[in-house]
């Protein structure tokens, strides 16, 4: 035998306007919502402005410049990057970075792993991996040189990377450089 559909008496639960039409308007709630909406628009406008100036990456404020005290290495990079979005680290070498027609540079593993190094331009003549990083050797003249690392970050969050200029003479101090990058999701 089929069971009956449960029923319930209809109640006049929806508020009427002028005792005339059941609308269920709640103007007080709506006024609070409009206030909330205005707050949201202000917050969204601020976020868009911050994005335009580069606080979330890919803008003027997201680019940083650093250099070693002797000027042998100057680095331009984005301190705020975005996940899976291309960016660059550009290295400018002064003449003092060149030894016997080569520049030897050690780059920490974070550049390859967390920051997702895709390619190095120009191509190094030699790459040796080990000691927590990669050692690149570039053929160079005595004039200012530059090298570019094309990145595509693969890990969200803060990452610190290090660069170090290597010289043939062990008695000479090696110019080191460490920087932090925040990768936005």
């Amino acid at each position: 035998m089929p069971t009956e559909t449960p029923t319930k008496p209809v109640e006049d639960s929806i508020a009427k306007v002028n005792d005339d039409i059941a609308v269920g308007e709640d103007l007080e709630f709506q006024r609070r919502w409009w206030k909330f909406e205005r707050g949201v628009w202000v917050v969204l406008s601020i976020l868009v402005l911050l994005d335009v100036i580069g606080v979330f990456g890919r803008g003027p404020l997201s680019t940083a410049h650093r250099q070693t005290p002797d000027g042998a290495l100057r680095v331009q990079y984005d301190w705020v990057d975005r996940f899976q979005t291309p960016s660059n680290i550009t290295l400018h070498f002064g003449p003092q970075a060149v030894h016997n027609g080569t520049i030897r540079l050690w780059v920490s593993d974070e550049v390859v792993k967390a920051l997702g190094n895709q390619r190095v331009s120009p191509q190094p003549v030699q790459s040796i991996t080990g000691n927590g990083g990669v050692q690149y050797t570039f053929a160079a003249t005595d004039k200012p040189n530059s090298v570019e690392f094309a990145l595509q970050p693969s890990i969200v969050g803060e990452t610190h990377f290090s660069l170090r200029l290597l010289s043939d003479d062990p008695s000479q101090p090696q110019e080191a450089f460490t920087a932090g990058v925040f990768v936005m999701p």
Partner: peptide, 24 residues
Amino acid sequence: AKLLDGTPLILLAHGQWHEEVMHG
């Protein structure tokens, strides 16, 4: 439900515009 959908709002009643609602 109210947060997601809001509530119905009267725009016009008995020949009178509800300007606050229309504007909002």
